[in-house]
Design a binder for these strands. Structure first.
Length: 494
RNA sequence: CGGGGCGUAGCGCAGUCCGGUUAGCGCGCCUGCCUUGGGAGCAGGAGGCCCCCAGUUCAAAUCUGGGCGCCCCGACCA
């Protein structure tokens, strides 16, 4: 007992308060929280299950938003904003949707000191209110397609929450589109899944598997749900984005029809798609290490931090002068910060910026000024090299690109190492816990086997892959032995 | 909702079993000096409804009863 307490005490003592964080090996989930706290990305709020996104975290989100928003605009979408409150009756119009969301909704019953005639749901997602409006806006095929996105907060009353990964309130974007044909809606659904995959790989440097959700895992109210799945460092899966083909379900529920070229009245086809601040959790768990956060350069709010080093005022002036000259052409090229705070020693600053995930650090002291060079340290692999002052901007730019690419390669290699084919259920039951990972396995397509899988192993079918991870081949269901025509991805998920 | 852990300074904790000085320790914070190439040092200082309520007692952080909250692990979920 005493020993246990001592250990705990020592560990905490040794961690945030003094030097390093809890390591991944020690306690992965505590490490995750420590990284967030040390990088000051977020903090717990007074309200259970909610979090405050601090400036460092919000700056990251803004970078993500900017990149995604551009991708949405480039694919023809426009932004709009729909209200937070949804009439209860709306929520109840689509049967599966109600069933899926009712248990996790927050409901406002009072306003202005009086009981409301009709309770207002706080949106867990906006399909219903949006389709109530689309009904007003759509009459003719000429009104289609509608390609609207909104950046918003939503509330889902989760039983168990974790910073960024699952909080009661979270920020996201939700695209809601309306189309004349099923083909067009399907095309849109896949297109947006691909946008997400591209964003994940090119910006977040996270490799993802694109796939289709099983009937049980799909969105409540969708005909078909596409997703991107990423592997975290603990080898668990994280659903990083979803894109739903809603078919005519919401058009039916809200009676949204249009007249086609022939004057026939037809139901509209719908899609919806979203990614959330959960992606910040994905970035943390994919790239960060025991020293703290590691950010991909393309999304890092501060890409380069410059640490001037000096002894005495003369040196200080000379070094800062050099820094000034050096960075004068950097404005608008990359995001940098000069940390010339007094009273903190260089080593202290190195650690602080490492915890915050800044991709590149440049140290410049009297010796460097003399030699017309700087020291450059990469956050991702710790490499520290002397770099000539000449063409420094170019070197920095290239190094940032290299880091971005290396992060992706490293994550991809890790993912692939831990993505294995498996045929024996007994073997699976062992390996899902140790070493863990993503497993390609045959599945017959029946709910019963899927349920059994989850009950017995806590793993779920993450998706039926449709990209390079697709494995079409004849086989037998790992669980029941019935015929299967392709493999699915099974893993434990967040 | 079940299981576990915990509420004492900004953070991490000791003290609680066995009631009794002015409630401590580390880190952080403030002031000054000195320093600055991987989390320096010295000196001084500020900071506490000991989660809340009730009870027992001459006396409660400590005992009793009740409540609240948080974290972790499970069942549900992006």
């Amino acid at each position: 007992m005493l020993i246990a307490i001592d250990n705990k005490q020592n560990r905490r003592f040794r961690t945030i308060m003094s030097k390093g964080l809890t390591t991944r090996a020690e306690d992965y989930s505590r490490w995750y929280t420590d990284v967030i706290m040390a990088a000051q990305l977020a903090d717990y709020s007074p309200v259970k299950g909610c979090m405050v996104i601090r400036p460092n975290g919000y700056a990251l989100w803004e970078k993500m938003q900017a990149a995604l928003d551009k991708m949405f605009k480039d694919t023809g979408h426009v932004n709009a904003y729909f209200p937070l409150f949804i009439p209860e009756s709306f929520m109840k119009k689509e049967a599966e949707h109600v069933e899926g969301f009712a248990p996790e909704c927050a409901v406002v019953t009072h306003g202005g000191g009086k009981k409301l005639e009709e309770p207002l749901f706080i949106r867990p997602t906006s399909e219903t209110i949006i389709w109530s409006m689309y009904k007003k806006w759509i009459q003719s095929h000429r009104d289609l397609p509608i390609l609207i996105n909104q950046w918003a907060n939503v509330v889902r009353w989760e039983m168990r929450t974790r910073l960024f990964l699952r909080t009661t309130e979270f920020l996201w974007q939700e695209g809601h589109t309306a189309h004349a044909t099923a083909e067009e809606a399907e095309e849109e659904t896949i297109k947006m899944m691909n946008v997400y995959a591209k964003f994940a790989q090119d910006f977040m440097a996270i490799p993802v598997i694109r796939g289709i959700k099983t009937e049980q895992e799909k969105f409540a109210g969708a005909v078909r749900t596409y997703c991107i799945e990423a592997m975290m460092q603990d080898k668990r899966a994280l659903q990083a984005g979803t894109s739903h083909n809603l078919g005519q379900n919401f058009a039916k529920a809200f009676d949204v029809t249009f007249q086609d070229e022939n004057g026939d009245l037809k139901l509209v086809y719908a899609t919806s798609w979203g990614v959330s601040t959960r992606l910040i959790g994905a970035i943390i768990m994919t790239h960060s290490d025991d020293k703290g956060l590691v950010l991909p350069p393309k999304l890092a709010p501060v890409q380069v931090v410059i640490i001037p080093i000096w002894k005495g005022d003369d040196q200080k002036d000379a070094v800062l002068q050099k820094v000034e000259e050096m960075t004068i052409q950097w404005n608008g090229r990359f995001a940098f910060k000069v940390d010339d705070r007094e009273g903190y020693r260089p080593g202290w600053k190195y650690n602080e910026w490492e915890q915050r995930g800044v991709p590149l650090r440049i140290e410049i002291g009297p010796k460097d000024v003399e030699n017309n060079q700087v020291m450059m340290a990469r956050r991702d692999n710790g490499e520290k090299t002397a770099v000539p002052m000449a063409n420094l901007s170019m070197t920095v730019e290239r190094t940032l690109e290299t880091i971005q690419n290396d992060l992706f390669k490293k994550a991809l290699a890790y993912r692939d190492e831990n993505l294995i084919e498996i045929d024996s259920y007994d073997e699976f039951k062992e390996k899902i816990n140790d070493p863990g990972g993503f497993f390609w396995a045959h599945w017959c397509g029946q709910n019963a086997c899927e349920d059994r899988l989850q009950e017995e192993t806590k793993a779920t079918i993450r998706c039926i892959p449709i990209d390079d991870s697709k494995r079409v081949e004849e086989g037998t269901c790992m669980l029941c032995g019935e015929p299967s025509h392709e493999r699915v991805i099974m893993a434990k998920a967040y």
